[in-house]
């Protein structure tokens, strides 16, 4: 075991990750130069719309990008171990034990013809084959109890369809955390659930972090969920991270027009509702041919307000530190982040 301080508490370190999918006559670079770090006990939100590359990034971390898609560059280090050159078997040994996935639709991810107990046992049997069967049974009941599944001794004999969506999702969380992974990747774990059940599952993720110090990457398109459980947030657009920083700072004063647009689109609750919600005009660019300059330029309200500066469409903005405000690690991929603050005047809502 690597001692904690040897890597400064950093669980995951990703540099310049790129993933491509070849199509007939073209190539889609779905993930294009993603950097990210997650520290032990930290919950990092990854937000972005469908097609922004957030799920493909997560699959790449897990070594689950399948052909013809492939990782074409970059480095992924889990607790200091480089995963880039590892073969399928070595990766399989890490998955479940060192890093685990909680899928978005547990109902679809669970095997419909296998009882709950046997499914939870698969991970244990694979990674801890030396454990006697009876002891594994005890651990299964224990983990199911910990995720708040009522009457686990009855539930283990049930099939997935006999459980509600919320209960299925609890089973998926149990399978994700049972081996105490360093990194948990939760890919839209609550999207399909009612708000009351969503609250229960997010509370559960907070408890998991509290109890075992697990680092969690929380992928979602819901900024309100990010705001309540994440420490930091990464905003993805068109295959790139366009903004990163602490949740409080990013939400209070977004450093990228896309982040601001995402926040503005949330329907307000309470008071007299507005006549219209703020929307983002247009659609994301074609991934087969990313624009030369800023990928958000075409839809960007800030660019229009600034009178269409030439660099927006001719120079690709780099991810740059926002010196003027916030703590370290506040970064944005925009040529005019300060103009955004002036335009917004601080708080979003």
């Amino acid at each position: 075991m690597t001692p904690l301080d040897e890597t400064g508490g950093t669980v995951l370190e990703v540099r310049d990750l790129a993933v491509e999918f070849p199509l007939t006559g073209s190539v889609v670079r779905a993930v294009d130069g993603v950097d990210l770090d997650v520290a032990a006990g930290e919950i990092v939100g990854v937000v972005g719309e469908s097609g922004s590359g957030k799920s493909v990034t997560m699959l790449a971390l897990l070594g689950l990008v399948h052909r013809p898609g492939r990782i074409v560059g970059g480095s992924v280090r889990l607790r200091g171990t480089e995963l880039a050159g590892l073969g399928p078997r070595e990766l399989a040994r890490l998955r479940g034990r060192r890093m685990a996935l909680i899928p978005s639709d547990a109902g679809a991810a669970l095997n419909p013809v296998t009882r709950i107990g046997a499914q939870v046992d698969e991970g244990l049997a694979r990674h801890l084959p030396e454990l006697p069967r009876a002891e594994r049974q005890g651990r299964i009941l224990d983990i199911l109890r910990r995720v708040g599944l009522p009457r686990p001794d009855t539930q283990v004999r049930r099939y997935p369809h006999e459980l509600s969506g919320g209960m299925q999702q609890r089973v998926a969380v149990a399978m994700g955390v049972q081996l105490g992974p360093d990194l948990l990747i939760a890919d839209e774990p609550t999207t399909a659930l009612d708000v009351t059940i969503q609250a229960q599952i997010l509370r559960l993720l907070l408890d998991v972090r509290e109890e075992s110090g697990t680092a969690i990457l929380f992928v979602t398109h819901d900024m309100t969920a990010v705001a309540e459980i994440c420490d930091r947030v990464l905003v993805m657009y068109a295959g790139q991270i366009v903004e990163s920083g602490s949740v409080a700072e990013v939400c209070a004063a977004p450093g990228h027009p896309y982040t601001k647009a995402l926040l503005d689109a949330i329907p307000p609750l309470g008071g007299e509702p507005p006549e219209e919600l703020t929307t983002i005009p247009g659609a994301p660019p074609d991934p087969r041919a990313w624009p030369v300059g800023c990928r958000f330029a075409e839809r960007c309200p800030l660019r229009r307000r600034l009178g269409d500066p030439a660099e927006c469409t001719s120079v690709a903005p780099a991810m740059a530190t926002l010196d003027s405000r916030g703590s370290a690690g506040r970064r944005s991929r925009c040529h005019f982040p300060d103009a955004l603050v002036e335009a917004v005047g601080g708080l979003v809502r």
């Binding site: 509600s164 705001a227 309540e228 459980i229 949740v247 809502r349």
Partner: peptide, 21 residues
């Protein structure tokens, strides 16, 4: 149980235990 959207305010929601079932 609706998230209040208070960034940095932590987990402010009510959690109702149990399910409709």
């Amino acid at each position: 149980s609706i998230p209040a959207f208070q960034p940095g305010g932590g987990f402010t929601r009510t959690v109702i235990q149990g399910e409709i079932s």
